[in-house]
């Protein structure tokens, strides 16, 4: 039977580095996912997650409710990512030919995927990222964003419908537009 977060946090507070290591391995995917919602770039998101774990490690004893470690870590990770995002370049590199149809907008992400994710509010984007990228269960996501698993499922459904406007095939979009339904955004 794996130890709970609470047990691992308590053991880590006693100086057991191995227990913190288990927390690290258990929640690393979540931390990178939370960071990627703001940073987009995978490698930078990993840096942010690792830095967040360092902060968590140094301040673990201040955590009042060890059972809420994922939520607490998520908050640290968001703050770290926000700070790192401030240091990111605000400009796209100059290119000889500006191709409006180019799919590449950010490292590793297609323009339409980026636009679809950007169209969501921050919580919905985090839920989508934690589901599709971090591959967390509804229960695990619920712990991070402090919603019920049912609410996660509902939010995910609505987010998926909204993103479909950006990601669905062009012909389907045109069919829906001609039928008076919302189509692909320009």
């Amino acid at each position: 039977m794996p130890k709970s977060d609470e047990e691992l946090v308590n053991a880590a507070c006693q100086g057991d580095l191995a227990s913190f290591g288990l927390l690290y391995e258990r929640h690393y995917r979540m931390a990178v996912g939370v960071a990627r919602c703001q940073l987009w770039d995978l490698h930078l998101s990993e840096d942010a997650a690792q830095e967040a774990f360092a902060t968590a490690c140094q301040t673990l004893r201040t955590l009042q409710n060890p059972a809420r470690f994922p939520e607490w870590l998520g908050t640290i990770c968001r703050r770290t990512a926000t700070r790192l995002a401030k240091g990111q370049s605000k400009y796209e590199p100059f290119t000889e030919v500006h191709d409006e149809t180019s799919d590449t907008v950010l490292p590793g992400l297609r323009r339409d995927v980026h636009d679809a994710l950007s169209s969501l509010d921050a919580t919905a984007r985090e839920i989508v990222m934690l589901h599709y990228f971090s591959r967390l269960t509804y229960e695990e996501i619920a712990e991070v964003v402090q919603l019920s698993p049912q609410a996660i499922q509902g939010r995910l459904q609505r987010a998926r419908a909204k993103m479909a406007e950006f990601l669905e095939p062009e012909e389907a979009s045109l069919r829906r537009t001609s039928a008076g339904q919302p189509g692909k955004k320009p």
Binding site: G33, Y132, F133, A164, E168
Partner: peptide, 17 residues
């Protein structure tokens, strides 16, 4: 459309190392 969205997101976002 829903499964197409799923497939695209999973493919584009990849997975955490």
């Amino acid at each position: 459309h829903e499964s197409e969205t799923d497939r695209l997101l999973q493919a584009e976002l990849g997975s955490v190392p």
